[in-house]
Computed example of a mutant assay.
Amino acid sequence: MSQISFHSPVGELSIAEDEGFIVSVDWGWGSIQEETPLLQEAKKQFDAYFDGQLKQFNLPIRPFGTAYQLKVWKALQTIPFGETRSYQELAQIAGGSPRSIGGANGANPIPLIIPCHRVIGKSDLGGYSGGEGIETKEYLLNMEKLFR
Protein backbone atom coordinates (compact mmCIF):
# COMPACT_ATOMS: atom_id res chain seq x y z
CA MET A 1 0.00 0.00 0.00
CA SER A 2 1.28 3.46 -0.93
CA GLN A 3 0.51 6.66 0.92
CA ILE A 4 1.16 10.39 0.74
CA SER A 5 0.48 13.10 3.29
CA PHE A 6 -0.03 16.81 2.82
CA HIS A 7 -1.22 19.96 4.56
CA SER A 8 -4.78 21.12 3.92
CA PRO A 9 -7.09 23.80 5.33
CA VAL A 10 -8.58 21.13 7.64
CA GLY A 11 -5.23 19.82 8.88
CA GLU A 12 -2.79 17.21 7.71
CA LEU A 13 -4.31 14.53 5.49
CA SER A 14 -2.95 11.17 4.38
CA ILE A 15 -4.28 9.34 1.33
CA ALA A 16 -3.62 5.64 0.79
CA GLU A 17 -3.78 3.63 -2.41
CA ASP A 18 -3.89 -0.11 -2.86
CA GLU A 19 -3.86 -1.88 -6.23
CA GLY A 20 -4.89 1.23 -8.17
CA PHE A 21 -7.70 2.37 -5.84
CA ILE A 22 -7.90 5.01 -3.11
CA VAL A 23 -8.72 3.04 0.04
CA SER A 24 -8.45 5.64 2.78
CA VAL A 25 -8.19 9.30 3.68
CA ASP A 26 -7.04 9.92 7.24
CA TRP A 27 -6.32 12.97 9.34
CA GLY A 28 -2.70 13.15 10.40
CA TRP A 29 0.68 12.54 8.81
CA GLY A 30 1.36 8.97 7.75
CA SER A 31 4.63 7.30 8.68
CA ILE A 32 5.25 5.85 5.22
CA GLN A 33 5.39 8.20 2.24
CA GLU A 34 5.40 6.69 -1.24
CA GLU A 35 4.03 8.70 -4.16
CA THR A 36 2.31 7.05 -7.09
CA PRO A 37 0.67 8.66 -10.13
CA LEU A 38 -2.78 8.01 -8.59
CA LEU A 39 -1.81 9.61 -5.28
CA GLN A 40 -0.35 12.60 -7.11
CA GLU A 41 -3.65 12.97 -8.98
CA ALA A 42 -5.57 12.64 -5.71
CA LYS A 43 -3.46 15.40 -4.13
CA LYS A 44 -4.07 17.59 -7.20
CA GLN A 45 -7.82 17.02 -6.87
CA PHE A 46 -7.77 17.77 -3.14
CA ASP A 47 -5.95 21.06 -3.82
CA ALA A 48 -8.57 21.96 -6.45
CA TYR A 49 -11.38 20.99 -4.05
CA PHE A 50 -10.05 23.23 -1.28
CA ASP A 51 -9.59 26.06 -3.81
CA GLY A 52 -13.25 25.74 -4.84
CA GLN A 53 -12.34 24.60 -8.35
CA LEU A 54 -13.44 20.95 -8.00
CA LYS A 55 -17.00 20.04 -7.10
CA GLN A 56 -16.73 16.25 -7.36
CA PHE A 57 -13.73 13.97 -7.03
CA ASN A 58 -12.99 11.71 -9.98
CA LEU A 59 -10.83 8.99 -8.49
CA PRO A 60 -11.09 5.20 -8.39
CA ILE A 61 -12.05 4.26 -4.83
CA ARG A 62 -12.44 0.98 -3.01
CA PRO A 63 -13.88 1.46 0.47
CA PHE A 64 -13.87 -1.63 2.64
CA GLY A 65 -17.01 -2.16 4.72
CA THR A 66 -20.18 -4.14 5.17
CA ALA A 67 -22.78 -4.38 2.42
CA TYR A 68 -24.91 -1.83 4.30
CA GLN A 69 -22.01 0.59 4.77
CA LEU A 70 -21.18 0.35 1.07
CA LYS A 71 -24.81 1.17 0.24
CA VAL A 72 -24.75 4.23 2.52
CA TRP A 73 -21.39 5.41 1.15
CA LYS A 74 -22.73 5.11 -2.40
CA ALA A 75 -25.74 7.23 -1.41
CA LEU A 76 -23.44 9.83 0.15
CA GLN A 77 -21.72 10.28 -3.19
CA THR A 78 -24.99 11.49 -4.73
CA ILE A 79 -25.20 14.53 -2.43
CA PRO A 80 -24.12 17.49 -4.58
CA PHE A 81 -21.31 19.85 -3.62
CA GLY A 82 -22.61 22.60 -1.34
CA GLU A 83 -25.78 20.72 -0.38
CA THR A 84 -26.74 18.63 2.63
CA ARG A 85 -29.11 15.80 3.42
CA SER A 86 -30.45 14.77 6.80
CA TYR A 87 -29.71 11.43 8.40
CA GLN A 88 -33.43 10.70 7.96
CA GLU A 89 -33.38 11.52 4.22
CA LEU A 90 -30.37 9.28 3.74
CA ALA A 91 -32.08 6.48 5.68
CA GLN A 92 -35.00 6.70 3.23
CA ILE A 93 -32.55 6.32 0.32
CA ALA A 94 -30.17 3.69 1.73
CA GLY A 95 -32.45 1.97 4.22
CA GLY A 96 -31.93 1.59 7.92
CA SER A 97 -32.41 4.31 10.49
CA PRO A 98 -30.84 7.72 11.07
CA ARG A 99 -28.71 6.09 13.77
CA SER A 100 -27.43 3.40 11.38
CA ILE A 101 -26.64 6.12 8.82
CA GLY A 102 -24.61 7.90 11.50
CA GLY A 103 -22.75 4.68 12.26
CA ALA A 104 -21.93 4.14 8.59
CA ASN A 105 -20.82 7.77 8.27
CA GLY A 106 -18.51 7.39 11.26
CA ALA A 107 -16.94 4.30 9.67
CA ASN A 108 -16.38 5.99 6.28
CA PRO A 109 -12.75 5.21 5.36
CA ILE A 110 -12.58 7.78 2.55
CA PRO A 111 -13.99 11.06 3.94
CA LEU A 112 -14.22 14.10 1.68
CA ILE A 113 -14.15 11.91 -1.44
CA ILE A 114 -17.16 10.13 0.05
CA PRO A 115 -18.71 13.30 1.51
CA CYS A 116 -20.08 12.20 4.88
CA HIS A 117 -19.72 15.81 6.09
CA ARG A 118 -22.81 16.67 4.00
CA VAL A 119 -25.14 14.71 6.30
CA ILE A 120 -26.77 16.74 9.05
CA GLY A 121 -29.30 16.25 11.83
CA LYS A 122 -32.83 17.66 11.86
CA SER A 123 -31.99 20.43 14.31
CA ASP A 124 -28.19 20.61 14.28
CA LEU A 125 -25.17 19.56 12.26
CA GLY A 126 -24.93 16.15 13.88
CA GLY A 127 -21.49 14.69 14.55
CA TYR A 128 -18.25 14.41 12.65
CA SER A 129 -15.30 12.20 13.48
CA GLY A 130 -12.72 13.78 11.15
CA GLY A 131 -10.17 16.46 11.95
CA GLU A 132 -11.35 18.69 14.78
CA GLY A 133 -14.83 17.17 14.75
CA ILE A 134 -17.77 19.52 14.32
CA GLU A 135 -15.47 22.50 13.63
CA THR A 136 -14.08 20.66 10.60
CA LYS A 137 -17.59 19.78 9.41
CA GLU A 138 -18.67 23.42 9.74
CA TYR A 139 -15.59 24.55 7.82
CA LEU A 140 -16.24 22.11 4.97
CA LEU A 141 -19.94 22.98 4.68
CA ASN A 142 -19.24 26.73 4.77
CA MET A 143 -16.43 26.39 2.21
CA GLU A 144 -18.69 24.46 -0.15
CA LYS A 145 -21.50 27.03 0.26
CA LEU A 146 -19.05 29.81 -0.56
CA PHE A 147 -17.80 28.10 -3.72
CA ARG A 148 -21.17 26.71 -4.85
Rank of each mutant, 00 (worst) to 15 (best):
R85C: 09
P63V: 07
K71Y: 08
L90G: 02
S97T: 15
I61A: 00
S31N: 08
G20L: 11
W73R: 01
K145S: 09
E19T: 10
E41C: 03
L54I: 09
G96M: 09
E41Q: 14
I120H: 02
A16C: 11
I61D: 00
S14C: 13
N142K: 14
L112H: 03
N58T: 15
Q45M: 02
I114S: 00
S123Q: 10
K122A: 14
E138K: 14
A94R: 06
A42P: 06
T66M: 12
A16K: 11
G102H: 07
H117P: 04
E135Y: 13
D51H: 14
L125K: 02
E83G: 02
G30P: 02
W73Q: 01
Y68N: 07
G121E: 11
E138C: 04
Y139I: 07
A91E: 12
G127C: 04
I101D: 00
I110R: 00
R99S: 08
Y49E: 05
G127V: 05
I15W: 00
S5D: 13
G30Y: 03
L125E: 03
K71V: 09
H7Q: 15
I110G: 00
N142F: 03
M143S: 04
L13F: 04
V10E: 01
E17S: 06
Q45I: 01
Q40V: 14
S8I: 03
E89R: 05
L112D: 01
S97N: 12
K74R: 10
T78A: 14
I32W: 05
M143F: 03
A48W: 13
A91M: 12
N58D: 15
P111I: 01
K43D: 02
A91T: 13
G95C: 09
H7K: 14
M1Y: 15
E89L: 06
Y128A: 03
S31C: 05
F57E: 02
Y87Q: 07
I120T: 07
S97C: 13
G127N: 11
W27Q: 07
G11T: 05
F21A: 08
S123W: 12
S123E: 13
P63L: 06
K74Y: 10
L90V: 15
E12K: 12
V23W: 02
Y49T: 07
D18V: 10
G126P: 01
D18H: 13
F6P: 02
G127S: 14
I79F: 02
E83D: 11
P80H: 13
L13K: 01
G96Y: 09
V25K: 00
P109A: 10
S14M: 08
Q45E: 06
S14A: 15
E89C: 08
A75L: 01
A42H: 06
R85I: 10
G130T: 01
W29L: 05
Q69G: 12
S123L: 10
T84P: 08
W29S: 04
N105W: 01
L13C: 04
K145P: 05
E34V: 09
Q3P: 01
M143Y: 00
H7Y: 08
T136N: 05
L141S: 06
Q88K: 14
M143T: 00
P109W: 05
G102D: 08
F147L: 06
D26H: 10
G11P: 02
V10F: 03
L59R: 03
Q56W: 05
I32C: 05
